[in-house]
Write a protein that binds this DNA or RNA. Structure first.
Lengths: 116, 116
DNA sequence: TAAACATATGAACAACTGTTCATATGTTTA
DNA sequence: TAAACATATGAACAGTTGTTCATATGTTTA
């Protein structure tokens, strides 16, 4: 018999064509990776974690994490461009807070996975 | 008055000492970042996503993602060392599958956040 | 045992990332 | 308006990361 869809290796699992058909769109998976990439840095995780408690201004986040104002500002920009934080200006100071509740859920899920 | 705990900037938010007290341990946050770092790569996300459907062998994952066997093997090692996948050998072929259900939950939360 | 097959791995390299430093922008106060 | 304060930003640099290439390890079959 000449099966054109024959696999190189003979594995006992579901045909890869079927798996392939069930995969989300390539672009969506890219966006997923990009989202998790944001959470994949300790400084940003700390910032997010701090913002769970309270809206904060840049200087205080820097003070809290014992880091440079510049470093924090750069990271806040990353978080902002990913729509994870929102900004509110009041005179000289700029207040940052979390954009929505999904962030907390994702954080908590990660936490649960770690603590097992 | 000489308030030793005075803040450099006078913001209207919760004192940073209180925020600081509520933060999880430094090490835990590092582990969190490390976990999300794994999800923060498109190749690994795709592998994880494929394994949602079925246990798979290395060659087929490579075929599915149109990538080198070597590249996939390297990434599987990363996933394995983070205990996200488990291994089962059967003769020549090695089958990979997801280690637990938390992975699916984290993935789905990310998906939800994206689709909004 | 030799050949074929399936996977793993080390070295190398390019691309990406996070911090620092210097400085710019924007706001308030004296 | 000048000075002080709060934040943002560009360039540079070191450290990290993902892929490739060549090759090694491990398993089965002829």
């Amino acid at each position: 018999m000449s099966d054109k869809n024959e696999k190189k290796t003979d594995c006992a699992h579901e045909p890869i064509e079927e798996v392939s058909a069930k995969m989300p769109a390539e672009e969506l998976l890219y966006d997923m990776a990009d989202l998790f990439k944001i959470f994949g840095d300790c400084t940003r995780i700390k910032i997010i974690c701090a913002l769970f408690e309270s809206e904060l201004c840049v200087n205080h986040i820097a003070e809290l994490l014992s880091m440079t104002q510049s470093a924090i500002s750069h990271q806040l920009r990353v978080l902002k461009s990913a729509r994870l934080v929102k900004v509110r200006r009041e005179g000289k100071t700029v207040y940052y807070s979390l954009a929505d509740d999904h962030i907390k859920t994702i954080f908590d899920q990660g936490l649960e996975h770690i603590c097992e």
